[in-house]
Design a protein around this nucleic acid. Structure first.
Lengths: 198, 198
DNA sequence: GAATCTTCGACCAAATTGTTCTGACATTTT
DNA sequence: AAAATGTCAGAACAATTTGGTCGAAGATTC
């Protein structure tokens, strides 16, 4: 009754861990049931299908990502730090939010249309955040920007480009160095020259 | 013809990676075939069954473990260092040789009798190595040992005891600290007192 | 004690999976 | 060159697995 939502959350968390370990396909309802210590059919009292559980899991991770990101950019003041934090948190989230990213990249899952929906919405939100950061940076004359909309899009494209190698070889090189390199490039192209002003 | 053994090795390596990721059960022959870029039925030209592949994988890892261990104890001279190296390498191997250890611990696999065989042989070999280290240590009067056979058994028991928590929560605490603690205990109970001789 | 909420075992149809079989192509042997 | 043997893959299969359903049986609330 009142516990139903609570129980749904429990299922989402437990399922999230198992999904992230074995992927959607290789995770069975029996496993989820056993992990939750309930009958397999009982799960269907809370969710209509395996796919619906996965959707909830992915949505949950997407929300967590959003929260962490907004917290990260609120924690600092300068536009440069905001941008740096944003990029860092977003890329560091790769390991934790594996279901979300698997859902986006795994070819076996692209028939799930909810993925496209989530991704589209997240892209829109991300663009808004980036635009805001950039706009404020330009306002404070820290960034040299002609059109904050286009610049935001450019940054987003870079981030997406970084996702791919990050996904395919996860444990290879450390993310930090690579991120810093990208941020360096990004800022040197974007930061207003302090010494010899144009 | 001459390539057959070569190809078997390739299969063992590729299968080893996939098994270590998904476990024996969740790995399908189709996956192995796709990873090897060959027809599923072609695999059966090299191996009689999925189980036989797994056996070869586990055996391979066991051999690798043996090699690393002998190399590790040969690289130093003093009995204390030998013992320390042995324990370290053995426990650090936990991550790399996941199939071997999964085969030993996974309840779903205990019906494979080859596991028991491998384990038994490895136990025997390990005991021999430990006994040798201890015996030499006693000879050099670095270790204080009554019966090197029993002492070796005691050390082995300790190592096995350490396997269990290592298996169940892999990424929790760092192994190093724990190993050092155990070695400390081990040596303080086993090393001959230098200052105030008995 | 009726009504509703929650759980579960039994069951099912569909999909998956390990394995076999047959035949095609390649290579070697005679 | 043809026979024999080695190498591979597609189709087919039997057995198992898997996601999902249904009705009944406890709980809980009214």
């Amino acid at each position: 009754m009142i516990d139903k939502d609570e129980y749904r959350k429990k299922i989402i968390i437990s399922a999230g861990q198992i999904f992230s370990r074995y992927g959607f396909r290789k995770t069975t309802m029996d496993e989820l049931a056993k992990a939750l210590k309930m009958g397999k059919s009982s799960i269907y009292y809370y969710f209509k299908s395996k796919e619906e559980i996965f959707e909830a899991v992915v949505l949950n991770e997407a929300n967590m990502l959003r929260n962490e990101l907004t917290k990260a950019i609120k924690s600092v003041d300068s536009p440069i730090d905001k941008m740096r934090n944003y990029v860092f948190v977003r890329m560091k989230a790769f390991e934790k939010l594996s279901n979300y990213y698997n859902a986006i990249f795994d070819k076996n899952l692209d028939h799930f249309d909810f993925i496209e929906t989530i991704r589209a919405r997240y892209d829109r939100e991300e663009l808004a955040i980036l635009r805001l950061i950039i706009y404020h940076g330009a306002r404070k004359k820290v960034f040299r920007v002609v059109n904050s909309e286009f610049t935001a899009l450019a940054v987003q494209t870079t981030l997406k480009g970084l996702e791919v190698p990050l996904f395919w070889k996860k444990r290879e090189m450390n993310i930090e160095d690579r991120l810093n390199a990208i941020l360096d490039v990004l800022f040197y192209g974007i930061v207003r020259k302090q010494a010899s002003e144009v």
